[in-house]
Write a protein that binds this DNA or RNA. Structure first.
Length: 207
DNA sequence: CCCTGATTCGC
DNA sequence: GCGAATCAGG
């Protein structure tokens, strides 16, 4: 037992079969390159994107719905000093674009029973604002904030956006707060207030 | 500013 | 093949 365990050091970390699989899976699920990169670890989002393109799955059409064509980024970098052979684009682009399918908001987590609702990623799930023992002021603030909410979709959430869900995931009237999240917290200031109740505030608020 | 993906090109 | 640098857009 000479070699104990390979310490997780700066090892190249190549694209093993498993890693590629995970990459494909996440990419197909619509995960962003940065998220995939973080999940994989040891690679940057650039690496992920590079690999994605090399694999030939630049488009997220390979699995569930084909509804994943987002008109984002056209890319046309050629201002680089390079003797590139005139490569114009005389060929048209017949894109059999069907109607924009509904981006099923309730679908993305593999670790989910996949049934109806779906909740954001990681982090402690917040208790839905119901009959809770929360400071009336905090609740009021939440309500106030919800008006200013950016109403982001699941895909638009980042680590710096408030991930507080509002509404019923089963309906169209569902979105995430999206306001600037507190550093190190998954929610904005207002929602942190109701998400993380101090022990002292809970007490035995028996009815 | 934050984020996203796309592409190029040296390694 | 790989991915940092860069580009381009939201």
């Amino acid at each position: 037992m000479a070699e104990p365990l390979l310490s997780f050091e700066r090892v190249p970390m190549s694209w093993t079969d498993e890693r590629v699989e995970l990459l494909k899976k996440m990419w197909s699920e619509g995960q962003s390159a940065s998220q995939i990169a973080k999940e994989l670890g040891g690679v940057t989002r650039n690496a992920v994107i590079g690999k994605v393109h090399r694999l030939g799955l630049s488009n997220r059409s390979g699995g569930t719905s084909q509804a994943a064509a987002k008109p984002e980024a056209k890319a046309k970098p050629e201002p680089k000093a390079k003797a590139a052979p005139a490569e114009t684009k005389p060929a048209p682009k017949p894109e059999p674009r069907t109607e924009p399918a509904r981006p099923a908001a309730a679908e993305s987590r593999p670790a989910t029973p996949a049934r109806k609702p779906i909740v954001p990623a990681g982090q402690p799930l917040p208790p839905q604002p119901s009959a809770n023992e929360i400071s009336p002021e905090a609740l009021a603030k939440v309500h106030e904030v919800e008006k200013k909410a950016r109403k982001l979709t699941l895909m638009e959430l980042t680590e710096r956006t408030c991930k507080w869900p509002v509404g019923d995931p089963a309906t169209e009237d569902f979105w995430f707060c999206g306001l600037p999240a507190q550093p190190g917290k998954p929610y904005c200031e207002a929602h942190v207030g109701v998400a993380f109740q101090p022990m002292s505030a809970r007490r035995d608020r028996r009815r």
